[in-house]
């Protein structure tokens, strides 16, 4: 059974297929076979969060999931949040607050924050701080990331549309 098998994903809302070996991780297949390079390799231990994607709406380590296990699932990356030329308000908030420096943690950070705010639309700064603890950033010292997510929560509250 070391043969390839066909995996179907709903990738950022679009149906995609890939032939994968069992040992290929979702990260590898997304990056190398399907061109979703926003899913970053950072450690391969499930620790750093640079490969975070949403699997059926829940954040997972794409480096620790075999692609074959994701067959039939919906996968969302940071690119799935923006709509064409328009940034998602959370991405806009990251941009406005200077929450990205080198940007390598940003795709994972944004989807993690997106998921958290979706589940906790009234989250305060300390809850956000705890929620992002699984995504390492080496550049920003986190302050501007928290600023960005907090401002997004406030504006989404104001809009009534998280």
């Amino acid at each position: 059974m070391t043969a390839r098998s066909l995996v179907t994903l709903e990738l950022n809302g679009e149906r995609r297929e890939a032939w994968v070996f069992p040992h290929q991780t979702l990260m590898e297949v997304l990056r190398d076979d399907l061109g979703f390079t926003e899913v970053k390799y950072g450690c391969g231990e499930g620790l750093c969060g640079t490969c975070a994607v949403l699997l059926n709406g829940e954040s997972v380590n794409a480096c620790l999931l075999f692609a074959i296990q994701a067959d039939g699932c919906a996968v969302t990356t940071v690119k799935g949040l923006s709509e064409g030329a328009d940034l998602h308000p959370l991405q806009r908030s990251f941009l406005d607050h200077g929450a990205s420096q080198c940007g390598f943690c940003t795709p994972g950070m944004v989807v993690t924050a997106y998921e958290f705010v979706r589940e906790h639309p009234r989250a305060g700064r300390e809850e956000i701080r705890a929620a992002l603890a699984g995504n390492l950033c080496r550049c920003t010292g986190y302050v501007k990331i928290l600023d960005a997510v907090e401002a997004y929560v406030r504006s989404a509250e104001a809009d009534g549309s998280p």
């Binding site: 940071v78 940034l87 806009r92 990205s100 080198c102 940007g103 944004v110």
Partner: peptide, 15 residues
Amino acid sequence: DFEQKVRGELSYADD
């Protein structure tokens, strides 16, 4: 480049 970063579009060395 910062907009590309929040979009996940910037092409790093491994990309």
